[in-house]
């Protein structure tokens, strides 16, 4: 079970959080201009990376705020947590 650093509340146990998967998937500006396959990429397709991954978490049993984690899916190491408006923290050098 991770310890997650909520950018608003500080470090808390994972049990206080929920995730909705990959972060930085922006809803298309004008969906009507997309073809079915492009729209499907937004709705269903994910990078599902083995390695450093940016994902969206919410402090659901806490402040209720959404934020992003930079976490390594191959080791579960967490490199950074940041608010949606923050600049992207860089990927750590080590691959795992």
């Amino acid at each position: 079970m991770f310890i997650i650093d909520c950018p608003w509340c500080g470090t808390r146990d994972q049990s206080e959080f929920t995730t909705h998967g990959e972060a930085h998937i922006t809803r298309p500006e004008d969906p009507e201009t997309l073809d079915d396959a492009e729209w499907a990429q937004y709705v269903f397709y994910r990078n599902n990376v083995k390695g450093w991954y940016r994902e969206r978490w919410v402090h659901s049993s806490g402040c209720g705020r959404w934020f992003n984690l930079l976490r390594n899916t191959a080791s579960d190491a967490i490199a950074a947590s940041y608010r949606p408006e923050d600049p992207l923290p860089p990927l750590p050098e080590d691959s795992y």
Partner: peptide, 10 residues
């Protein structure tokens, strides 16, 4: 939850 997610992230 969905409203919050959209308001906070989108």
């Amino acid at each position: 939850g969905w409203i919050e997610e959209m308001l906070q992230t989108e």
